[in-house]
Simulated assay, not measured.
Amino acid sequence: MTEMADAGATSQEMMSLSGHLTTAMVDVYASKNTAQTVNALEKRRMFGWSEADLNRMIEEYEDGTDGDE
């Protein structure tokens, strides 16, 4: 499941392949990591976020901060 999430699969797509009935169960088996964060941010780039914004968000994720500090 983690590999599918790393590849950018949505929870619905993973549910259709795994047979899980809820996204909560998918989340149990799809460990969160930086690759998934980068994939999500790359998708957001399509909506106009700058490279600097994306890099800052990745750094905040890796540092464990949320940008509000």
Rank of each mutant, 00 (worst) to 15 (best):
E60W: 11
S11C: 04
E62V: 03
R56H: 05
A52I: 08
A30H: 02
G64S: 15
A40Y: 05
G48H: 14
E69W: 12
T34R: 10
L41Y: 08
S16F: 03
D53G: 07
L54W: 02
L17R: 11
E69F: 10
A5M: 01
H20R: 07
K32S: 00
A9T: 02
S18Y: 00
M4V: 00
T23M: 00
Y29R: 00
T65C: 07
A35L: 02
M14Y: 14
E13R: 04
L21I: 03
E59Q: 15
S31Q: 11
D63Q: 09
A30G: 07
G19Q: 15
V38E: 07
G48Y: 15
T22L: 14
V26L: 09
T10Y: 04
E59D: 11
S31C: 06
E51H: 09
N55K: 11
A5Y: 00
W49K: 08
D66C: 04
S16R: 12
G64C: 15
V26A: 01
V26R: 06
M46W: 02
M15C: 01
N33K: 06
E3H: 05
F47A: 13
A7Y: 13
I58F: 08
N33Q: 05
T10C: 06
T22Y: 05
G8M: 05
W49A: 05
D6H: 12
M46H: 06
S50R: 11
K32E: 00
T10N: 05
A24E: 02
D6F: 01
R44V: 13
D63L: 08
F47T: 13
M46I: 03
W49G: 13
S31E: 04
A9Q: 07
A52K: 14
K32N: 01
E51D: 15
M14T: 04
E60L: 14
A30L: 03
N39E: 10
T37K: 13
A24M: 10
G67N: 09
M1N: 01
Y61P: 02
G67W: 10
A52F: 09
A40S: 12
E3L: 13
V28Y: 12
E62F: 03
D53N: 08
G64T: 10
T34Q: 10
M4F: 04
D6M: 05
V26Y: 00
E13Q: 13
Y61Q: 02
M15G: 03
D66P: 06
T23D: 00
S50P: 14
A9Y: 12
A9H: 13
